[in-house]
Design a binder for these strands. Structure first.
Lengths: 192, 192
DNA sequence: TTTTTTGTACTGACCAGTCAGTTCAAAAAT
DNA sequence: ATTTTTGAACTGACTGGTCAGTACAAAAAA
């Protein structure tokens, strides 16, 4: 079976929302990109809002899964896992540019929507913070660092590095980029 | 003389744009916030676009000035200046929350506008990259790091840390926050 | 006098959401 | 076997509201 219409819609909506932002994306445009009639959009989602949240929710879930899969790798030492999670962020963001854009600009201004997206994203932050806190308890992360700040920094540095690359139309991440981010992160790890 | 009408407009526009985003901000709303008649808006700025770009441009200039003022302090050693620039970012972002929000979500989707904002922001990036490159040449920053990546990371970590704080309705930056960011940054500095 | 500001009223483009109607495959009736 | 019915999936023209930008006359400032 080919993609279902619903999948087509979600994919098209992701492209459109990422490119134009929530308000500048019209339902007609989504219908065009998804190659579906406008009515079909409203058959599957009752409002633009609902479609938007569905797209974000799915994306955040993917990001969380991707983090989980690294943190549960028994073949890596604890401190290797931190660096590997950073790499995974870079990989994820570069493979899902549209989603990356959406997540980085999650403050859309709308009170209610921000609330929702905040809740969804906080699923991600909670996951990350739990992992980092555990690492800190086990002595792999310096005891005097603020977990929350470390996590939002990691998210911000990975995200913005990708964003800037995308803006400069550079493709892919070089070894020097990775090294730079690893070194930044190593500042908060306890020394070997 | 009190604030000129034009200043009132720019300030009101900053508030409105930061809160609602470009598209969801109406000119009527800006006029309301700025306590100015709609006609006055169009007397000073011929389009919404023009007003928006003026606001961003002014903001980026402020950020660049703020970075310059730190990097030119002769009383600080070179490596002190790097950390001080980071602190300055935090201060600037926390004192100009609205602007911080706007700059972080500068990708609005509109091709032309992104181009413009990109150009304006790249003034900031160029400045920062020049400083960091100089520090690297003088041996205060590890030779194997990628300057551009370091700068976008710094911007991203400071910005997102503030954004997250704002979202969690936490006020101000604690010493632990600063320490965390300093430690991150110290990873790319040559050791004393 | 000239420039700036105000406020109201208006226009036209644009867009979220609606709805009457189509398609079609599978189930039920004949 | 053939016809009829059902209902879920889908379509796209249409509607009602919103908002950038205009027009302009009168008032206030400079």
């Amino acid at each position: 079976m080919a993609r279902s219409k619903k999948d087509q819609i979600v994919e098209g909506a992701l492209m459109a929302f990422a490119q134009y932002g929530y308000s500048d994306t019209t339902m007609d445009a989504i219908a065009d990109v998804a190659e579906v009639a406008k009515g079909t959009l409203y058959y599957h989602f009752s409002t633009k809002e609902e479609l938007f949240l569905y797209v974000i929710e799915k994306g955040v879930k993917m990001l969380i899964d991707s983090v989980d899969s690294v943190m549960q790798r028994e073949d890596l030492s604890m401190d290797q896992r931190v660096l590997c999670v950073l790499d995974e962020h870079l990989r994820f963001f570069s493979e899902n540019r549209e989603l990356c854009l959406l997540l980085l600009s999650f403050f859309t201004g709308d009170q209610q929507r921000d609330e929702m997206i905040g809740k969804l994203l906080s699923g991600y932050f909670t996951t990350m913070e739990a992992y980092v806190a555990e690492l800190q308890r086990e002595g792999f992360v310096r005891p005097d660092i603020e977990v929350r700040t470390m996590v939002s920094s990691l998210f911000g540095m990975a995200g913005f590095t990708m964003l800037r690359k995308q803006f400069r139309k550079e493709t892919g991440i070089t070894d020097a980029d990775k090294r730079t981010l690893h070194l930044l992160l190593s500042g908060v790890l306890t020394k070997g």
